[in-house]
Design a protein around this nucleic acid. Sequence first.
DNA 1: AAATTGTTCAACCGCACTGGT
DNA 2: CACCAGTGCGGTTGAACAATT
Length: 235
Amino acid sequence: MCTRRMVMVKEEMRRGPWTEQEDLQLAWFAALFGERRWDFIAQVSGLNRTGKSCRMRWVNYLHPSLKRGRMTPQEECLILELHSRWGNRWSRIARRLPGRTDNEIKNYWRTHTRKKAQEQKRSCSPSRTTTSPADDFPIGSEPRAEAAAGCHLSSSCMSLGLDEDSHGADWCSMDQAWNEMGMPEAIDGRSFGDCKASNAWPLSMPSPPVWECCSSAPLWKPDEEEELNSAAFGL
DNA sequence: AAATTGTTCAACCGCACTGGT
DNA sequence: CACCAGTGCGGTTGAACAATT
C-alpha cells in the first residue's frame, strides 16, 4: 500500500450538494478529458470530490442529453414494461429510455409502486386476507403486480418498439397492471396528453460550448449486444 | 399561519465487475 | 495468477419542497 494513496484518502473530500461553480468545472473537465476518467478528472479539476461523485453528478445531472421534467406516459409505460421483464436492472432499463438515468427511473419506480401499493392496500382493506402486502416487500424483491395479473400487452406500449412475442408466458398488459393497482387513465391526476417532457436546462447557467462536442456522443446508445441477444433469445 | 405528514430526487454507500500490471 | 484501482450498478438515505390538517 503506497503512502501517497494513504495521504489522498486522508484528505477530506467535499460531499453533499454540488454548487453551480462545481458543475461548470466538472462539465468543462469532463468534456476535456472524456466521460470515463473520473478519478483523473476529480484530481485535476481541483473539485476535491471523489471520482465516483464526479461521475455520478455528470451522469445523473449534468449530461447534456438528459431530459428534465416528469416522465411522459409513454416513458412511464415503458418503465413498467421493462421492469416487469428485467426487474431492478435500472441501468439496463435506462438504456431504453434516452435522456433518463437509472437513478431517475429507480426513484420513479420506488415512488410510484409505493403509492400504488398503498392505494391497493387501502382498496383491499379492511378484510384483506392475502399475504405479502405490496408495500411490505423490500424494493427489488417485490412481487410483480403486473406478472400476477397475467394478461396481454397494451397497444400503447407496442408502439414503443416492444415485441409482444418476446415476453413469454408470464408477460402481461400494463393497462391491466395499472387497473390492478387502481390506476386510472391519467397518471397522478394528469391526462396522458397532458404530460410534457421538459428539455430545458435546469440550471441558470450558460451552456458551455464544450458541450456541443460531447453532446454528439450520447450517453445512451442502443445496446447492440442486447439487441442481438433479444433477437436470438426472444427477449 | 403553523405544524405535521407525504413526496420527490440528489447524493452517498457498498459491492461486483473489469482491465491493467 | 493475484492484486489493485477505477468504474458501474443497485439500494438506501435525508434534505427540500408540497400538500394537508
